[in-house]
Design a binder for these strands. Structure first.
Length: 795
DNA sequence: GCAAGGTC
């Protein structure tokens, strides 16, 4: 009988495919590898009965590496590694699999490749083909193209067998070779040099990799953004209202905030002139909070990191265990769409006995499952979902992750939460303020998905056109705050966005750079760079090759795509990339002083370090490193990190519990009392530097932000983040800070503004002596404060 | 002793 050898990427796939195609009649026997079984059954193929033999590999079975001639770190100049011969051979741990394949193919006339239908899968397919053709050169080879492991998909693949795609596989060969050459050359070079100069332990490898360095780069970039962040003051107007029945409502300013003190004060002033609020608009609408989309690997890692405080690496280890126990589906998937072939009902039914979510699962069954799908499919695996209910004990971590997968799954197939959102718009002296409230009508998925919160907020009832006096109107000073260090979830999201690593490897790269002591997770579970990571990034950044940036990898990725599509030749891409990196390497070696300098900042000057512990065999110190000619001086310097603006208001405390105004009868609204004011003249030292609120010399800074005040100098407290002192330099000679008391509020404003005159309300356009009135803001005539052009120019 | 990619 015609025998067909079918090889899948992993045992699980081979087992499922055989079970489906044989309608559960496949027999199983052992191969040489205890993890990769052999499944057999008869099938009708090519219009004839055939015997199908299904077996598997475990991912790649081959690895490429240099030959032994280039193994010595001490004797081989790393630059040689860009051209040294590379061989691809079966890894030690895959020799059993190789034996199985060779034995089985000898009995077969046809080989069908069932590896995952992605780039790596195509390459693994050729590893299998190469092994099998070595034994049986004339064997017919086909590729099964399938999108899910279901009967219909597998049967369709068999009736539409295609040829494997050499180009896709070649793209992976190019990637492998480049990763190896670049990684090995830079790793050996920097490890040996830094060990020698800075006394690192001989066991401490200082690796370079095309994924690990950009990952480190993200961490360092954020760290530096934070370090170099210049806080900028802003001002805003906050309005509160407590109704007579005691209900409370907070209104936010439609302008959000202003980065100029003066115009904010002007507006505040106008509001205080006529502080009567009028309700302009009330809207109510349905609001949904969406249930989560089907779970893929990256989302699972991010969720577990945020909600379970489990690292990506740990999450994948635990997920792997759950998968091996048959409790969840395959955990490495980019798919967040449930295929139609999957019958969700039995999967939900498995959960109805659980005390925590059984009742919810039953309700989902009653309503019918409606999965919320994302947009990605790797055409190989379904979204991560529970496959059965545990019948034995799980470890604590397994329990936590299983619970997350189940709750996510049940949430995904249930219904969105429903609520009513009310928005109220008010105006005070033409300035607009909003408040919004939320009533949750149906919790739906939120009942099972304890990881999402949706808070209710009730609002007092207002009528359209109603007027009222707010109980509090404050001008509040805030300050932009630096961006936070990256969490693991942030980092994974950045890696995904820039195409660094794959869903299966994100966590490994993050673990790797911690193992290398380039970075660590701090007590807030955010990544901060270690001295070594900072030194490396800074040194390479100074050379200008962007080795710690994601762009080089992204460029390679686009060329690999071109190879897959047939628009680029693998050999040409390989040559171009090797030439480019060889050149980068040579220039790096020539400028290595820049790396040394950066490292010196963190580890002291070379030679002043404690000697390395036991003297291991060292490379000759007169090695080839550091004495190359600089043939291609790259552009120097890095772009300034953009400053994220993250506002955070720091309220000036209200020292008086009594609200400044009491709401009055609407028919006869009573104007609230004018604020009292109280000026404090600040002392300055002999250089004209004012004292801040902590009574130390303030620090002079300059506005960097684009805008009317760019380049203008101001003073802030130099040593205390909680000291809210602020003063413009050009206004600080007489009055730096003014504190006003408004009924019950205290607020502080910087600058020598037109405090007294502008804050007196006038009853007519002309002064008592008949002269035409000047604008209270700019002192010009011909307009009032409300249409003052200088105010408008600020806004 | 080096990379990144599969998977057990």
């Amino acid at each position: 009988m015609h025998r067909v050898l079918n090889v899948a990427e992993k045992n699980d796939a081979a087992k499922s495919l055989a079970r489906l195609l044989s309608k559960n009649s496949a027999s199983m026997r052992e191969g040489f590898s205890k993890f990769n079984k052999i499944y057999e059954f008869n099938y009708q193929l090519f219009n004839q009965p055939v015997q199908m033999t299904f077996t598997s590999v475990s991912g790649h079975i081959m690895n490429c590496d240099f030959t032994s001639a280039h193994n010595s770190w001490a004797q081989v100049d790393p630059v040689v590694l860009f051209d040294a011969p590379i061989q691809k051979k079966v890894t030690d741990r895959a020799t059993d699999i190789e034996k199985t394949l060779k034995r089985e193919v000898a009995r077969c006339q046809t080989l069908i490749i069932w590896t995952d239908c992605d780039r790596e899968g195509e390459n693994i397919g050729y590893e299998i083909i190469d092994l099998c053709q070595a034994v049986k050169p004339g064997i017919k080879v086909y590729r099964a193209r399938f999108s899910e492991i279901t009967y219909s998909s597998a049967a369709r693949a068999l009736s539409n067998l295609i040829q494997p795609d050499r180009r896709i596989s070649a793209a992976v060969d190019v990637r492998q070779e480049l990763d190896l050459r670049i990684g090995a050359a830079f790793t050996r070079f920097q490890t040996l040099r830094l060990q020698r100069l800075f006394g690192f332990d001989s066991k401490q490898v200082i690796s370079y990799g095309s994924c690990q360095f950009p990952t480190l780069g993200f961490i360092v970039e954020r760290y530096l953004q934070r370090e170099n962040f210049i806080r900028e003051p802003f001002w805003k107007i906050a309005v509160e209202h407590q109704t007579e029945s005691g209900e409370f409502c907070e209104f936010t300013w439609e302008r959000v905030r202003l980065f100029e003190h003066q115009p904010c004060l002007m507006i505040y002033d106008m509001i205080m002139d006529e502080p009567l609020a009028k309700v302009m608009d009330i809207k109510s609408k349905n609001k949904s909070k969406w249930r989560p989309a089907a779970l893929d690997t990256v989302e699972m890692e991010k969720l577990a990191s945020r909600k379970l405080r489990m690292t990506g690496k740990k999450t994948m280890e635990v997920a792997e265990k759950l998968y091996m126990k048959g409790l969840i589906s395959y955990p490495r998937t980019e798919t967040n769409i449930f295929p139609n072939e999957i019958n969700l009902n039995p999967l939900i039914q498995n959960q109805v006995g659980d005390q925590r979510w059984g009742a919810f699962a039953q309700r989902v069954l009653n309503d019918g499952p409606h999965p919320r799908n994302g947009k990605n499919s790797d055409k190989a695996h379904p979204p991560i979902h529970p496959t059965r209910y545990p019948d034995g004990q799980l470890t604590e971590d397994e329990n936590k992750l299983y619970e997350l997968v189940v709750r996510h799954f049940l949430a995904c197939v249930s219904k969105d939460a429903q609520g009513d959102e009310t928005t109220i718009k008010i105006e005070i002296a033409n300035e607009k303020f909003n408040a919004s409230g939320l009533i949750i009508r149906e919790k739906n998925y939120l009942e099972v998905y304890i990881y999402d919160k949706w808070s209710e907020k009730s609002l007092p009832l207002y009528d359209l056109n109603q007027t009222f006096y707010p109980t509090k109107i404050e001008m509040v000073q805030g300050e932009t705050t630096p961006p936070q260090l990256l969490t693991e979830a942030d980092l994974i999201a950045l890696m995904e966005k820039h195409g660094i690593g794959t869903d299966a490897t994100h966590a490994e790269h993050i673990a790797k750079i911690q193992e290398r002591v380039y970075t660590k997770m701090n007590s807030e579970r955010r990544f901060e760079p270690e001295k070594l990571g900072l030194g490396l990034c800074e040194g390479y950044d100074k050379m200008g090759h962007a080795l710690s940036k994601p762009f080089l990898r992204a460029e390679l990725e686009s060329q690999l795509k071109a190879i897959c599509e047939g628009t680029a030749q693998p050999a040409a891409v390989l040559r171009e990339q090797i030439d480019k990196y060889r050149q980068v390497f040579i220039v790096t070696a020539a400028q290595i002083q820049k790396l040394d300098d950066a490292m010196t900042k963190y580890f002291g000057a070379p030679g002043q370090n404690p000697p390395p512990p036991p003297p291991p065999p060292r490379p000759p110190s007169s090695g080839p490193f550091g004495d190359r000619t600089n043939r291609n001086q790259p552009p120097n310097g890095r772009a300034n990190a953009p400053q994220n603006r993250q506002p955070q208001a720091s309220r000036v405390p209200n020292n008086n519990n009594n609200p400044p105004f009491r709401p009055q009868q609407q028919q006869q609204p009573t104007r609230p009392a004018r604020p009292l004011q109280q000026e404090q003249i600040r002392p300055t030292n002999s250089s004209g530097i004012p004292k801040c609120n902590c009574n130390t010399d303030a620090k002079e800074l300059t506005v960097k932000k684009d805008g009317p005040n760019r380049g203008r100098s101001f003073f802030r407290c130099g040593n205390n983040d909680n000291c809210n002192f602020f003063a413009w330099k050009d206004e600080s000679t007489t009055t730096a800070t003014t504190t006003f008391q408004t009924g019950g509020n205290t607020y502080r404003q910087g600058g020598n503004h037109q405090s007294t005159s502008s804050r007196k309300r006038r009853s007519s356009d002309n002064d008592e002596d008949g002269k035409q009135r000047k604008c209270g803001l700019c002192k010009e005539t011909g307009h009032t404060r409300r249409n003052c052009p200088s105010l408008n120019s600020f806004l």
